[in-house]
Computed example of a mutant assay.
Amino acid sequence: MKARNAVAILRVAWPSFVEVGGGVFLHEVDPAGLGCFGDLTAAEAFCNHVHVLDFVEHGAGLDGSDPGRGYYDAAHPDFLAAFEAGTLIAQSWQAKLARDFPGRRFRVYFCADDNPVVRFHTVRDNETPWLDERDWAQAVAAGRVIVLEVPSS
């Protein structure tokens, strides 16, 4: 692996968060565009996600089950490695958010279905979380979704 590739991956795992318009983001966003999401939680959940397989070369090809989309081969060793990387990124984000924003509440999600995705948002009393506990309990039990709280419970 080239050094610049390693740095890029480490920046994903340990990002320099930015505050914009009352939200916390992985990168600079246009504050004028945040209103199109309905609320700040939805804006954060949309802007603050990464698809793990997009950052690495892999052989977990699409299966073609859905023309134009398809799903990655979840049994492929590269997909399984992306699953492990995604859980590590989620744990890193949990630690970094706790360190950078003491006293603020966040929820970090890792979802393994399709292309493993890590995302986060601030937890706000007046806004609905990106994923409701009633919706993810079964997926958590099946090991397809990991939900991490900041501060950790």
Rank of each mutant, 00 (worst) to 15 (best):
7 V>N: 07
126 N>C: 07
142 A>T: 01
120 F>N: 02
141 A>L: 09
51 H>S: 10
10 L>I: 01
66 D>F: 06
105 R>Y: 12
108 V>G: 00
137 A>H: 08
130 W>T: 00
28 E>W: 03
83 F>Q: 14
129 P>Q: 02
57 E>R: 15
10 L>H: 03
28 E>Y: 02
149 E>V: 01
70 G>M: 08
49 H>C: 14
108 V>S: 00
31 P>Y: 06
22 G>Y: 04
137 A>E: 13
122 T>H: 05
48 N>R: 02
14 W>N: 09
80 L>D: 01
11 R>H: 06
129 P>K: 01
108 V>L: 03
64 G>W: 14
138 Q>C: 11
122 T>M: 09
88 L>M: 14
19 E>I: 07
150 V>G: 00
97 L>N: 07
16 S>D: 07
86 G>M: 11
38 G>E: 08
92 S>Y: 05
40 L>I: 14
152 S>Q: 10
16 S>V: 07
17 F>P: 00
145 V>S: 04
63 D>H: 13
36 C>Q: 15
110 F>Q: 13
149 E>A: 03
151 P>R: 14
143 G>L: 04
52 V>T: 11
33 G>N: 09
68 G>R: 13
130 W>I: 00
72 Y>I: 00
6 A>E: 08
31 P>N: 06
147 V>G: 12
75 A>Q: 13
18 V>P: 06
101 F>G: 09
50 V>S: 04
106 F>K: 04
65 S>L: 08
83 F>M: 10
77 P>K: 08
119 R>E: 04
84 E>C: 15
98 A>P: 03
63 D>G: 13
7 V>F: 06
138 Q>T: 12
74 A>F: 02
125 D>C: 04
25 F>D: 03
74 A>M: 05
60 A>S: 03
106 F>R: 03
135 D>G: 10
151 P>T: 13
142 A>C: 04
27 H>F: 02
43 A>H: 02
70 G>W: 11
113 D>H: 06
29 V>T: 03
80 L>F: 02
83 F>Y: 12
137 A>S: 10
114 D>Q: 10
3 A>V: 12
43 A>L: 04
79 F>I: 03
81 A>H: 12
48 N>K: 02
68 G>W: 09
116 P>W: 04
48 N>T: 04
120 F>T: 01
6 A>T: 09
22 G>W: 06
115 N>E: 10
4 R>A: 15
2 K>D: 14
1 M>I: 11
36 C>Y: 15
119 R>P: 01
29 V>I: 07
94 Q>P: 03
107 R>C: 06
35 G>N: 13
123 V>F: 05
131 L>I: 14
12 V>C: 10
114 D>W: 11
131 L>A: 14
86 G>E: 05
40 L>N: 00
133 E>C: 05
15 P>G: 07
129 P>V: 02
8 A>S: 14
148 L>I: 07
58 H>C: 05
108 V>H: 01
133 E>Y: 10
80 L>I: 05
133 E>T: 10
85 A>L: 15
66 D>V: 13
132 D>F: 14
57 E>P: 06
